[in-house]
Nucleic acid binder design. Structure first.
Lengths: 255, 255
DNA sequence: AAATGTGAACTTTTTCACAGCT
DNA sequence: AGCTGTGAAAAAGTTCACATTT
């Protein structure tokens, strides 16, 4: 694929920093878009803009992969797509199972970007017997009784949990026992897993709460000058949030 | 504690670190569970375990909020729930709109944890005229022509984008123009927004790619000697995976 | 002239370890 | 005796700025 070969990456020794790994998919997406438009090369500046990061960071990130750019020119798009894909392990096909085919599970099963980049939905699993056999996104739902067999038959190592919170830990344990070593958890609960198993969590409600925090802070900033007897406005800066209700606690606390 | 009249916490001045803010919802969830079981107090050790972090980190995090614990005892569950809720701005009710009522949008609308903690789905918006009026999760879908009016009438400042990638930027711009200042983006695209607008991104495919990276690394560890065509394998990474309690994942912070 | 790759400086986050309350 | 709260140390991540290469 692409470029003919450069000499070896020299020193890639130490592992790639986690923060960098987390950004590689971002770069890959931007590069894929460029590739589709047949753009042959791109500078760190342009690519960084497309990915929403700054160019120094991008160059530093790429430096952990090797020297894949050309000074004075930029990066060969196709070549970089390949290198990042390989680094992320996307040159192979990962069979994935989704457990819990409710609203969310169905949405995930239908999610296009899924299949497009290295992932294949190998099976949909649900505990509801009524769901069994029903096709979702063209794939028949299977009953969770067969979970272990499904995992093993398909050589699945990545599982997606989209069950209610109450079922998540049990599902997790069965997945792990059956051989899954990476889990993407959409259930709003902390999973405990044995050493060697990776878990990533996706949690709508947490994201909203983080937004609310910042939203609140914005609101407090404008109103900063209003009222508030007592504390001098000396350094009201970002401090605004805690000032208000602090003086006298609502009766919420028990004791 | 709870002193009637504390002299100001002295130095809480500086803003709360972003990494800490991102963990507060986690603590809050664990605390809420304890509260439901009527557990009166909890130690940093116990709470940290429930939240999946280590206790030093938790204590440091709480220290940014103030001194809400009791030495030798631990933290009063109800009191902490209140303090964290207040800090996150969850003592008020945030009206939210969801734009793009496909599979994912519907899943989000049906998501229970939504309403439970400070958020209220004020409206569902979709560009498909055929959807208009159809109830999803008990809420009638409205057409996107009325987006601006809906935002303004409901005083919405937080918007959730669950449209296809191609529509996301345009929707984003309309939301912002109408007054939204925080956006949770599920579309696999980088949104550009004016200063002062917060965007958080939730991206399934990115999460999976990060898992694939680690999965690949695990596999490579055992079979250390496979050659891949094209690019010579200089130093096969032997770097064993990070360990630690539970990676958080910052950034992606997801759904 | 243009743009990468990278030491070095700086910032943020995590972890340690223990003094100080209850 | 137990557990918080926090300085100080360590680690991770980001940004700067420029020598180097094409």
């Amino acid at each position: 694929m692409a470029t003919g070969r450069t000499h070896r990456p020299a020193t890639r020794s130490r592992g790639i920093p986690e923060a960098t790994v987390a950004r590689l998919p971002l770069y890959l997406r931007a590069l894929t878009a460029l590739s589709e438009r047949s753009v042959p090369t791109v500078s760190s500046e342009e690519l960084a803009a497309a990915a929403g990061v700054n160019s120094a960071k991008l160059r530093k990130d790429f430096s952990y992969l090797g020297s894949y750019g050309t000074r004075g020119v930029g990066y060969d798009v196709e070549y970089l797509v390949y290198q990042i894909s390989r680094e992320l392990g996307l040159t192979q096909d990962w069979p994935v199972v989704i457990v819990g085919i409710g609203n969310l599970g169905a949405a995930l099963a239908n999610y296009g970007g899924f299949a497009s980049r290295g992932f294949r939905v190998a099976a949909l699993i649900d505990a509801d017997p009524a769901m069994a056999g029903k096709p979702v996104a063209g794939i028949p739902v299977q009953h969770s009784d067969d979970l272990e067999k499904i995992i093993q038959d398909n050589g699945v190592s990545i599982g997606v949990i989209a069950t209610p919170a109450g079922a998540a830990q049990a599902v997790c344990e069965r997945l792990v026992a059956a051989g899954v070593t990476s889990i993407l958890n959409f259930a709003p609960t902390v999973l405990s897993v044995p050493e060697g198993v990776d878990v990533r969590k996706v949690d709508l409600s947490i994201e909203l709460q983080i937004l609310a925090f910042h939203e609140q802070r914005k609101a407090g900033e404008e109103a900063a000058a209003a009222s508030d007897g007592g504390v001098p406005a000396a350094a009201v800066r970002s401090d605004s949030t805690d000032q208000g209700p602090d003086g006298d606690m609502p009766a919420v606390m028990p004791a």
